[in-house]
Simulated assay, not measured.
Amino acid sequence: MSPWITTPLTADLVRGALDLERTEHGLLPHRLPEPARARCADPQLSLAESQPSGVRLAFRTRATAVELDALATKRAYTGAPPRPEGVYDLLVDGRLTDRASVTGGNTVTIDLATGSSELNPGPVGTLRFTGLPDRAKDVEIWLPHNEITELVALRTDAPVEPLPDRGRKVWLHHGSSISHGSDAESPTTTWPALAASLGGVELINLGFGGSALLDPFTARAMRDTPADFISLKIGINLVNTDLMRLRAFTPAVHGFLDTVRDGHPDTPLLVVSPILCPMHEETPGPTVMDVSALSAGRLAFSASGDPAEVAAGKLTLGVIRAELSRIVAERAAEDPHLHHLDGRDLYGEADAEELPLPDGLHPDAVTHRRIGERFAKRVFGDGAVFA
């Protein structure tokens, strides 16, 4: 007789997702609810919100062995070096205990030059953790932050029950690929996950790579999500995409904040401007692939806009920071729970000299840790806005 106990994968075992979709394989976590997803068919957003950054299985058990069947959808880029495998982090009673990856899975190959993509299907893989302590314990399996993951089956050698409510406050965060965790080492070492751990809060991470664009449906999703603290990191994707001018940016920020406030009138709300990104400090977007770097087998980006167009309303990070600071100061006169943080306090000029952004746009694993630690100190520390 097999020692394994199969536990149905249900919503009470999943944290950090706003929706769970039943697929032909199992359970697919989403970080936007279905009504929000229905408002936009953009492939970049669809990819980003279905990558489970901050999503984890959480349960209590005496099991010494855990198996998880999962179907990954991995990304590959034409002409670029292979991407690392997605990482699953195992936490036992809040402590990182093990890491592993799942083999097999689907692969989406993306041609960045043309925007085309091709799906190559693959098999379900199995993740196995053994040698867990033989006692009642809290277990969390953090899913890969950068890899679509369909949860197929959970098996243990002892019964499982949902993790009890530990009374921790909930932090709801929205941002770009940096908040999503691009180039972080693992799901618990993205800067928001690190900051949440240090701050002793439960994270719901709505960091969407390439998709922090002041979308009204994202604001409504945040409005409708219970939270004790809320933060919005706004700016870099608006420059990347060259999506709007200053005339549209200002009312879009107000509209986003108004919508969030409809559901959270008194919740501490922090607006965070972009971290330093030298190529876009004074040069607007769009951001483009560095073809010469790609031909050399590495991924890098460059700014293609004309600084002379800033006078006509094109956005740079400098313009966005100044306007966000002004907007928050204006609104804070009537909203004492609204706060502002300059992103350069998390990663500024001295940091860029010591730890330059490897691809010109995204921080590496070491920098994620620095940003997370600084955010925790400045935002969750004694006397801070989320204290």
Rank of each mutant, 00 (worst) to 15 (best):
P336K: 07
W171P: 02
V160E: 06
L68G: 04
G343N: 07
P187Q: 03
S186H: 09
G207K: 01
R135G: 07
C40F: 12
E353L: 15
E281N: 02
T218K: 01
A332E: 12
R83T: 06
L57G: 03
L27T: 15
G115R: 03
L68W: 05
A384K: 12
E21N: 04
R31Y: 02
S101F: 05
W171D: 00
T97S: 13
S186C: 10
I5T: 11
S2N: 15
G348Q: 14
R83I: 06
S46C: 05
V139Q: 06
L18K: 05
G115Q: 01
Y347M: 13
T61E: 07
F229E: 01
D335T: 13
L57F: 12
G105V: 08
H339Q: 08
G16I: 04
A384Q: 15
P363G: 03
S231N: 05
T283S: 09
Q44L: 08
E24C: 06
G313P: 10
F229Q: 00
A219Y: 00
K314A: 12
H145Q: 07
T267D: 08
R128L: 12
P226S: 10
S231I: 04
G207E: 01
V379Y: 00
V66G: 05
T23E: 09
P43W: 09
F59I: 03
V260I: 15
R15C: 09
D19I: 04
L57Y: 11
S231Y: 04
K314S: 14
L361Q: 01
H339D: 13
R369I: 08
F208W: 09
V366Y: 05
K137A: 15
P336A: 12
L57R: 03
L214C: 08
M1P: 11
T190V: 11
V201L: 10
A333G: 10
T103V: 12
V291W: 02
D351F: 02
G105R: 08
V170E: 00
H180Q: 13
F301R: 07
A252R: 04
D157G: 02
D111W: 03
M244T: 12
G79M: 10
G255I: 02
F217G: 00
L45K: 01
G313W: 14
D342F: 02
H264T: 11
F375H: 03
F249C: 05
E202H: 13
N146L: 01
T130F: 05
L361K: 00
P162W: 15
D134L: 14
P286G: 09
A36W: 00
P43V: 05
A76W: 02
A113W: 11
L96Y: 09
T73W: 00
D183M: 15
V253I: 10
D111Y: 04
L163D: 05
L214H: 06
V385Y: 11
R15A: 13
A333H: 14
E353Q: 13
P216K: 01
F256R: 10
M244K: 02
R155S: 08
T149V: 08
L346E: 08
A184T: 10
S325E: 15
F380T: 00
I234V: 15
D335E: 15
L214F: 09
V239D: 01
G104D: 11
H30F: 02
H174S: 13
